[in-house]
Design a protein around this nucleic acid. Structure first.
Length: 892
DNA sequence: GAGGTCACG
DNA sequence: ACGTACGTGACCTCC
């Protein structure tokens, strides 16, 4: 059974353009009409499942309608260039869908559609016309339904003749009479002055057609009668103009409209260019969620899968090993279940190479006959092309299998290509690259309580598809890195770093449980005391840890002044409480309670849970593919936020000790790395000068901003200057600075202006980087790390301002990240070359922590800062301060 | 699972 | 007029 869908391309594009905010891709190309059109099209294709689809466009400026009425569409605003530039792309996009499109010189889209619906009526084919224009309702029939967009383009109202009858009390043919009387300002159809929809409907209900209304105009009264009699011609002409011409000389037959579904890869390529990320994912999702099982079976059926479970599959295994030993290109996928790679369970693996995909359940990998494969894993000179090999290395290590030799990691590459992309699962990357979708993790395993490893058959097929996907992605992402100028960053920094990180994580850091436990007992007794004090002051027991309950106590029961609100109620954060401190003695108690409770739950109990019983060590997991700026992050547990600012919390660091008796903790941190990076990037003479002379940068800033000499800078001026420096790095705003310093916005603005007067290079940088971001759609670090900032062109002030601050901050924070990463790779090499026993254990953004035997202490105290400061040559010196002690606390 | 809070650079 | 400092992760409460 045929089913036609006929779309008024111009009308829908217009609707979409005005309904959506001005979206652009990173190249600055406007995409809102395209996006709206596409979402609507995908939805209709999915819901209506047409066999034939056509998009019709208006062609040429002059249509036959102008012959009779030159003012036709005259009053219409000129098409904005932001929209007209989208039409050629739209036409290409429709081709990517595999959908036919017509335009015929001298005719409008609705004439083409009218002509086709006439054929549909004659042939009895069910047809849906899609438009943003109610004019189309005249085409409705028992075969033809009109879908008119509502609320933008996401939803449509369906008009059958019956629906039109219900809504207007008219038959479809009368729609033109309606237009004839009421006109249409958007097309500059005049109609009859003073006649709107209400009057027009009343007249038509009585008389049926424009002609009849005119004939019976004598019966009418007053102004209406006068208007109609004087504008008879206008009414008749308007009716003619509103009439869709249904005899367009179309040469093409309807066979050309046949639609057999889109090609995922072609469409994904088009979406990729336009950066329709959510739609790309939806393509992926549509396949993986919708018919995941079927799809997977289908694609898997096309693969030559060799499942290796026992010695009997020796032949397959030999083939595989032979390919791997010859360094054949391949795709490796290892499934490790669990978020924490130190506790993940490997359930199987696959390698796609040659014309086959080899799949091994983990049980097979552990058997003696697979020893060759285990050997291959450990060979650093045997290249491995895989996905998230950092996690794999850790998971394998805990299963007693050594791993080395990453030649390419699809996930790491995808991160560099867009570090703000939070969907770096293999299925997401595959979908984004427009390869045929593989099932998402959730589709295969379920999630939460429903998590379940599927039966062996399903699992093997699934693993096979993933190995195959990795193999296809390797050359694509390699080329993308090259195109974006990030090959060097990838191959010489990120990939080597991945290995260094794994080494640090597996090494772990020793934590003295007794130390933490004692701290915990101490905290516990303090907490009990404070808690009862708080209850006394409140006059009631409540859950201090509940912001809701606390808010009620403070602002309702105790009637303290509530200043700040959150989405859900009163804000009770530290800033609010500090302001309230003078009003009630309960406030300092709550602040203290909060502080200690945090230490207890996160740092004492939290860390104790992470200490491995066997070794007394904590193994964090540095994530290399999370932070938008290129920084690392640390999880399970986070060792990058161990307390230091307050003395009570700093005590936690006493529990972090060397793993061997007599060794030391050595810690080295970059001094003012971000401001030094800024001095370099902005090439600011004054700032560079300050660092070349290794001045105290906040004092120097105070001198320049306040126009005083060094000995005139008091601690308050220095504090304010320090805040200004922070602000500069964060992408300053007067408001932000005023909040931070508790001063007026005007005063903050003056500080900033003064700063920019003295640090002219910084001012120039701030201005240039925003312009650059707007031009390129992204900003870069010194090592060419990118961050895309599409919102830099947003019309929404907040979004745009955020993007502008990010444009200033990311190159600074990101370059600092580049530098310490370089230092880590170089430090790792230095330790190996010199065959030192010292080990690098932790990284905290601008700090590296080592454990060092006594005999290497002196050497490391000079080597570490030397490597760190020499990691990258800038126009200012990099400085690293080093310290040591018997624990992390003492290394200060 | 979201929101609030707070630890770090 | 708009209303915010940049980047993270963990814990708790409450729905």
């Amino acid at each position: 059974m045929e089913k036609w869908m006929l779309i008024d391309g111009n009308s829908i594009a217009y609707r979409a353009f005005f309904a959506l905010p001005p979206l652009t891709n990173s190249a600055g190309q406007h995409t809102n009409a395209l996006y709206g059109f596409t979402t609507m099209l995908l939805k209709l294709l999915d819901e209506l499942k047409p066999t034939h689809v056509l998009v019709a466009f208006d062609a040429g400026k002059v249509t036959f309608r102008h012959e009779g009425y030159s003012e036709y569409k005259g009053g219409r605003q000129k098409t904005p260039p932001e929209l007209s530039e989208q039409f050629p792309v739209l036409k290409e996009l429709i081709r990517s869908f595999g959908i036919a499109q017509f335009e015929l010189s001298g005719y409008e889209a609705d004439d083409i559609i009218g002509t086709l619906t006439k054929r549909a009526d004659e042939q009895g084919v069910e047809t849906i016309v899609v438009s943003g224009d109610k004019d189309m309702l005249q085409l409705a029939s028992d075969k033809v339904t009109i879908a008119v967009t509502r609320k933008g383009v996401s939803e449509v109202d369906m008009y059958s003749p019956k629906a039109i009858q219900e809504k207007y009390g008219l038959v479809p043919q009368q729609i033109i009479d309606l237009k004839g009387l009421m006109g249409d300002t958007s097309d500059n159809i005049p109609g009859v002055p003073g006649v709107g929809e209400k009057t027009a409907l009343k007249l038509l209900h009585e008389h049926g057609t424009v002609e009849q209304v005119l004939e019976n105009a004598g019966e009418l009264k007053g102004k209406l009668k006068e208007n109609i009699e004087t504008h008879k011609d206008s009414a008749l002409m308007s009716k003619k103009l509103a009439t869709i011409f249904r005899e367009v000389p179309l040469e093409s037959g309807t066979d050309e409209l046949r639609y057999s579904g889109y090609d995922g890869a072609t469409l994904a390529e088009a979406f990729r260019k336009l950066e329709f990320k959510s739609l790309l994912e939806r393509l992926d999702l549509g396949e993986s969620v919708g018919d995941s099982a079927e799809e997977a079976k289908q694609s898997a059926a096309e693969l030559n899968i060799a499942i290796i479970t026992s010695e009997e599959d020796g032949e397959s295994l030999s083939e595989l090993l032979s390919a791997l030993q010859q360094d054949k290109e391949h795709g490796l996928y290892i499934e490790a279940i669990g978020e924490n790679p130190h506790q993940a369970e490997i359930i199987g693996m696959s390698v796609a190479t040659g014309d086959a995909v080899y799949v091994l359940p983990y049980s097979a990998l552990k058997k003696p006959f697979a020893a060759g494969l285990v050997e291959w894993f450990s060979q650093a000179d045997k290249p491995k092309y895989g996905f998230d090999l950092h996690k794999v290395e850790l998971a394998l290590a805990w299963s007693g299998i050594r791993y080395a030799g990453t030649a390419f990691d699809v996930q790491l590459a995808a991160y560099l290509l867009d570090p703000t992309d939070t969907a770096l699962s293999l299925s997401a990357i595959t979908g984004k690259q427009g390869l045929s979708g593989i099932a998402s993790d959730e589709a295969v395993y379920g999630k939460g309580a429903k998590f379940k490893v599927p039966d062996a058959d399903t699992l093997c097929r699934h693993l096979a598809l993933r190995g195959d996907a990795v193999r296809k992605l390797v050359p694509i992402l390699t080329a993308d890195l090259e195109k974006s100028g990030m090959s060097k960053l990838y191959f010489e920094l990120e990939q080597p770093l991945s290995r260094v990180l794994a080494g640090m994580e597996l090494q772990g850091i020793t934590v003295k449980k007794q130390e933490l436990e004692e701290l915990g007992r101490n905290l516990e007794s303090q907490l009990v005391t404070i808690m009862s004090d708080i209850y006394k002051h409140a006059g009631v027991e409540f859950n201090i840890g509940s912001p809701k309950q606390l808010g009620e106590i403070l602002f309702e029961k105790l009637e303290l002044p509530a200043r700040k609100k959150t989405k859900t109620g009163y804000s009770t954060d530290a800033e609010v409480l500090e302001d309230l401190a003078p009003y009630h003695p309960i406030i300092p108690l709550i602040l203290h309670y909060r502080q200690l409770a945090k230490l207890q739950s996160t740092y004492v109990e939290g860390l104790l849970k992470e200490v491995r019983g066997e070794t007394g060590k904590i193994h964090t997991y540095y994530r290399q593919t999370i932070a938008a700026t290129g920084r690392l992050s640390s999880q399970f547990p986070n060792l990058q936020n161990i307390p230091i600012r307050l003395e009570e919390g700093r005590q936690i660091r006493k529990a972090f000790v060397p793993s061997e008796p007599g060794w030391y903790i050595v810690a080295a941190d970059y001094s003012q790395i971000e401001l030094r990076v800024l001095a370099h990037i902005a090439d600011d003479e004054n700032l560079k000068e300050a660092f070349i002379h290794d001045m105290d940068i906040h004092t120097k800033t105070a001198m320049d901003v306040f126009g005083v000499t060094a000995d005139q800078v008091d601690s308050n001026m220095r504090r304010q200057a320090k805040a200004v420096n922070f602000g500069i790095v964060y992408g300053i705003s007067d408001y932000g600075l005023s909040q931070n310093l508790g001063i007026s916005r005007n005063d903050a603005g003056r500080f900033i202006e003064q700063y920019k007067e003295v640090f002219k290079g910084v001012r120039q940088f701030m201005e240039d980087i925003v312009v650059q971001a707007r031009r390129d759609g992204y900003v870069t670090t010194l090592l060419e790390r990118r961050r895309f900032l599409p919102e830099i062109k947003a019309s929404n002030f907040n979004l745009r301002s955020f993007a502008e601050r990010t444009a200033m901050n990311s190159p600074i924070q990101g370059t600092a990240a580049d530098i310490i990463k370089l230092a880590m790779v170089q430090m790792d090499e230095a330790l190996r070359e010199r065959k030192l026993k010292s080990r690098m254990l932790l990284q905290v953004h601008d700090e590296l922590v080592f454990e060092v035997p006594e005999e290497e202490l002196e050497l490391m105290k000079s080597l570490v800062p030397e490597v760190m400061s020499g990691a990258l040559k800038l126009h200012v010196p990099l400085k690293a301060d080093v310290s040591f002690g018997v624990n992390w606390y003492e290394a200060k």
